[in-house]
Write a protein that binds this DNA or RNA. Structure first.
Length: 480
RNA sequence: GGUCCCAUCGUCUAGUGGUUAGGACACUGGAUUCUCAUUCCGGAAACAGGGGUUCAAUUCCCCUUGGGACUACCA
């Protein structure tokens, strides 16, 4: 039975790199009819953030990455780690170390100055049992360090193939901190074993410490799981994706209006592809098609351009009803929004409003400004929008367009048909002898106050006569 | 500094000894459209360098270069 786990530490938010790790672990487990477990690595009391676990769980659920087991909390398992630590000490695979952090700092400083790799000098390796008893009895704080075998280690990584590390290069890792909590290394190995994890899928940053973990498995007499180290997600400058250079929290992307389908699709393709030219994959399809051996070795730049495109694709796939529901939370964020603005709309109106903006949205947040002209009474015009070089529209042209359109639209009775509205305005265009855009652009801006919006005829049709005339007059006043 | 990992268009990538090196995003030209958008058609754009191995290397090996990760009583 295949079993994977996602093991984040609750430091505040779910990193998009973490989201991808979770996704791949989930996909691999589900594809093999296995189990996907959640474990919270909260052994560092200093880094604990209130509410982080809950938000982590919520984000995973939002993306439908539902776990079958857990979450289990490492902070509640200190006894277990301690038990194995004692076992390791007794067997000579680990030893107590009384070195203070001051001494350790000093030691590293000297090693660095001497161009030596910083590494514990094993001062406490051969402490006698008596000395240990005396010093610990006197209340002196100590840690437990792993005694790394001074030999070569070979292991296989599912993504990277055969790897080799030298024991002499590996530091004697702290297993139990002086506060009695385990470090990642011990807790991780113990839990993965006790949870019967078969495949450890994690970020490449863990590759250098994998030898320590494997030696731990061996020292405890356990069989190591299969390892798969995922390539890193990168900043545009190709360094490890970090907060400094943009949003890294999965929540940020949800808030910006990216659909879960687009995020999952996008994240999945950062380091994996099906080998065909298909681009659009749902979570279910990914479960079907994903394979660890098609995962890339090199890191991937987290580049949002394609995400925008994907998001547009998924937005266009939505029914107007669904999309309307998805948009609503983003409308609510707007200062001008009031619930009764939407409550008074008929289902048909809602539907046609959504339909009018669906093709133009890249994110859910894009809908709000485009929908605003339908929902509020007065707009605060941005005059610069009325001039448009490409359309050959300037202030005078805008005034001309508005002055001539308003009477024509005032006479017009039938606003139910875009065709009729079009005919009406085409006459104005012919009368003025201008290009379509020269008339339509200022009208569209007058009605929407937006650079991007539904088309002019559509706006007029959806707004109806009263609002259309009111808007055009208001805009004309404003320009003059 | 040390250890380890990695290397195809700007970006994500296909490719597993013989291809006009393919696709997507972005960019760009055009068509459709009532403007922006959407949609459609076209264009520019890559095998880091040097040695081998081979009849033949993007592909296999080595070196160089470049990039990255790790190097805590953080994960």
């Amino acid at each position: 039975m295949i079993k994977t786990r996602f093991a984040p530490s609750p430091t505040g938010y779910l990193h998009v790199g973490g989201l991808r790790t979770a996704l791949y672990s989930y996909l691999f487990a589900k594809q093999n009819k296995g189990i996907f477990a959640l474990r919270i690595e909260d052994t560092d009391q200093k880094r604990y953030v209130e509410g982080a676990v809950e938000s982590l769980e919520n984000v995973l659920k939002f993306f439908d990455l539902n776990w079958d087991e857990g979450p289990i909390f490492q902070s509640k398992r200190t006894e277990i780690y301690m038990k194995y630590a004692r076992q390791l000490v007794l067997a000579g695979h680990a030893y107590p170390c009384f070195c203070t952090s001051e001494r350790l700092d000093e030691m590293r400083k000297q090693q660095e100055a001497a161009k030596q790799p910083p590494k514990y000098d094993r001062l406490c390796l051969n402490l006698s049992l008596e000395e240990y008893k005396v010093r610990s009895g006197a209340g002196e704080l100590y840690v437990i360090r792993q005694r790394i075998p001074q030999e070569d280690l070979f292991f296989n990584d599912l993504i990277r193939g055969d790897l080799q590390f030298h024991g002499k290069d590996v530091d004697d890792q702290v297993l139990i901190k002086s506060d009695g909590f385990p470090t990642y290394h011990l807790a991780n190995v113990v839990d993965d074993h006790e949870m019967k994890i078969t495949h450890v899928i994690r970020g490449e940053e863990w590759l250098p410490s994998t030898p320590k973990h494997i030696w731990l498995y061996k020292a405890l007499g356990w069989t190591p799981p299969v390892f798969a180290h995922l390539p890193l997600l990168l900043n545009p400058d190709r360094s490890k994706l970090s907060k400094r250079q943009g949003d890294v929290a999965a929540e940020d992307y949800i808030n910006k209006g990216y659909l879960k389908e687009a995020m999952i699709n996008f994240i999945a393709f950062l380091g994996w592809n099906p080998g065909t030219e298909e681009e659009l994959f749902t979570l279910e399809q990914l479960v079907e098609r994903f394979s660890l051996d098609r995962v890339q070795k090199a890191g991937a730049v987290f580049n949002l351009e394609k995400l925008d495109w994907l998001n547009g694709q998924y937005i266009r796939q939505k029914s107007p009803e669904e999309l309307g529901d998805l948009i609503l939370p983003y409308l609510r964020k707007e200062s001008w929004y009031k619930d009764d603005l939407v409550l008074q709309l008929s289902p048909e109106q809602k539907k046609s409003f959504v339909l009018s903006v669906q093709l133009r949205m890249k994110t859910l947040a894009d809908a709000a400004p485009m929908l605003k002209p339908f929902l509020v009474d007065a707009l605060d015009y941005d005059l610069s929008l009325f001039t448009n070089e490409k359309m050959k529209v300037d202030k005078a042209m805008a005034v001309l367009a508005l002055e001539n359109s308003i009477p024509a639209l005032e006479i017009l009775e039938d606003y139910d048909s875009e065709e009729v509205i079009k005919e009406c305005l085409v006459k104005v265009i012919e009368k003025l002898g201008v290009k379509n855009g020269q008339l339509l652009w200022p009208l569209r801006v007058a009605l929407s106050n937006e650079q991007f919006s539904p088309g002019t005829f559509e706006l007029i049709h959806l707004m109806g006569k009263r609002l259309t005339i009111k808007r055009l007059k208001a805009a004309l006043d404003k320009i003059c």
